[in-house]
Simulated scan of single mutants.
Amino acid sequence: MVVEHFLEIVGINKSFGSVQVLKTCSMTVAAKETVVVIGPSGSGKSTLLRSINLLEPVDSGDIFFAGENITRERKKAHLLRQQIGMVFQNFELFAHLSAVENVMLAPMKILGVSSADAHDIAVDLLRKVQIPEKADAFPDELSGGQQQRVAIARALAMRPKLMLYDEPTSALDPEMIREVLDVMAELSAEGMTSIVVTHEMGFARRAADRIVFMEQGEIIESASSDQFFGGTVNDRARRFLDQILH
């Protein structure tokens, strides 16, 4: 079977009580593509990511991952999350574990990897996110940027096919943002399929293949990065972009 789209979202709707936060949202993501999702606060961006990872069940519509309809596979959600890594705004590291132990944990507990092999994987990944010297440091001994890079390494330890980032730099001081974005951009350049919710337009220009603009629960615009920043976007997206860039 030929999989046309690595990820395909077809008309999903999601409400919390009387508030509809996703309104017939549809989008596709190709393998090795980096899609940046932007939009004002409350537009549904985080709920979209959480729906893809089955952290939030949708009310209607379908989500296809690698050709399989995963929308209602709640019982298999833990298996799906082995293939879809997610990095959140808050780092959510285990405070009592060192950086290398945080990265080792999931491969050992979920994949059954031996302690020695998990240690080798974790050390390699900490090198990949450019903090190998912090392997034995505990979270409270790390800067926010370093903690977020450990969180990225932890997600990568499960060898995901897709990475989701939910505003991964929003909790960081400005001087720490670049170090995290550099790691994310490098992963994208290496071909990691990624969906990134962010307000960092510099990263979007640098790393995104495509920009998706959301407003009030709807996907309003989906365009290549060149098209989006080149000015061929609709009025609502252009107004948002003008506000965030000036």
Rank of each mutant, 00 (worst) to 15 (best):
T47P: 05
M108A: 08
K75P: 05
Q83P: 04
N102W: 07
D59M: 10
A99L: 05
S41H: 05
D62G: 08
H96I: 10
G112W: 01
M27V: 10
V58Y: 01
C25E: 00
L49H: 09
I70H: 02
H78N: 15
H96A: 09
E73N: 14
E56M: 09
E68Q: 13
Q89R: 12
Q82R: 11
A95L: 14
K109C: 04
E33A: 10
G67W: 10
E92F: 13
A106L: 07
V29P: 02
A31K: 15
G85I: 03
L80S: 04
V87L: 00
H96P: 04
S98W: 01
N53Y: 09
H78L: 13
D62T: 12
R50P: 03
G44A: 03
E101M: 04
A99D: 04
S41G: 06
R74M: 14
Q83H: 12
L49M: 14
S46V: 05
L54Y: 05
S41E: 07
E68L: 13
I70T: 02
T71N: 09
V87R: 02
S43P: 04
P40G: 08
D62V: 13
S98M: 10
L97S: 03
N90L: 14
L93D: 02
V58F: 06
S43G: 02
G67S: 15
L93V: 14
Q82E: 14
I110V: 14
F88G: 04
K75I: 09
S26L: 09
S51A: 13
T34N: 08
V103K: 01
G42S: 06
I110S: 06
F94D: 10
V36E: 00
L80M: 01
Q82I: 08
L49A: 08
S46A: 07
G112K: 05
N53H: 10
I38P: 00
I38Q: 03
I38C: 03
R72L: 11
P107N: 09
T34F: 07
L48G: 02
P107Y: 02
K32M: 06
L54T: 11
E56A: 05
A30D: 15
L48N: 04
L97I: 08
K76Y: 12
R50I: 11
P57F: 13
I38N: 03
A95M: 12
L93P: 01
P40L: 11
